[in-house]
């Protein structure tokens, strides 16, 4: 490929990685400062999607532009993109299962709470049985 395309790919990738790193730090601060599990879930979303999926796509672009890596740069680019897609699918489901388990087993308190329909439904079911 010609140098201009390489530069464009690398710069685009670096912008994505920079955005990802920013999200990463923000999510980490949130993870540390938020008061309880259900609030920290929000930080986890930013950490997984903004802090992992976006930089992985950036890495794929950088690798595609780095011709000093030789022919095997496509290996890095492809694997980074696949990892990004996997994170995009797995992270939300992992959080969902965890949140459901935490709610059901009462391992974490729901706080601050406006309304909790899941809890009300469960109480109703329990009452009927």
């Amino acid at each position: 490929m010609d140098p201009v395309t390489n530069w464009v790919l690398v710069i685009l990738g670096e912008i994505l990685v920079s955005i990802g790193v920013f999200f990463d730090v923000v999510a980490a601060i949130g993870m540390l400062r938020f008061p309880n599990f259900f609030v920290r879930l929000h930080a986890a979303t930013i950490g997984a999607i903004g802090g992992a999926f976006v930089p992985l796509m950036g890495v794929a672009l950088i690798a595609a532009g780095c011709d000093f890596l030789g022919k095997y740069r496509w290996f890095i680019a492809g694997a980074a993109a696949v990892t990004g897609v996997l994170v995009l699918m797995l992270a939300p489901v992992g959080s969902h299962l965890l949140a459901k388990a935490a709610h059901e087993s009462r391992a974490a308190v729901v706080e601050p709470k406006v309304v909790d329909f899941l809890e009300e439904d469960k109480a109703k079911e329990g009452g009927e049985q």
């Binding site: 920290r40 879930l41 950490g47 992992a52 992985l56 935490a102």
Partner: peptide, 23 residues
Amino acid sequence: PDIVLAVDCLSYDLAAFLALLSI
């Protein structure tokens, strides 16, 4: 759940970091 969530985030970010390091 807090511990698992933190390990999760750590690992996903570590995956991105490992990809960067391999370049």
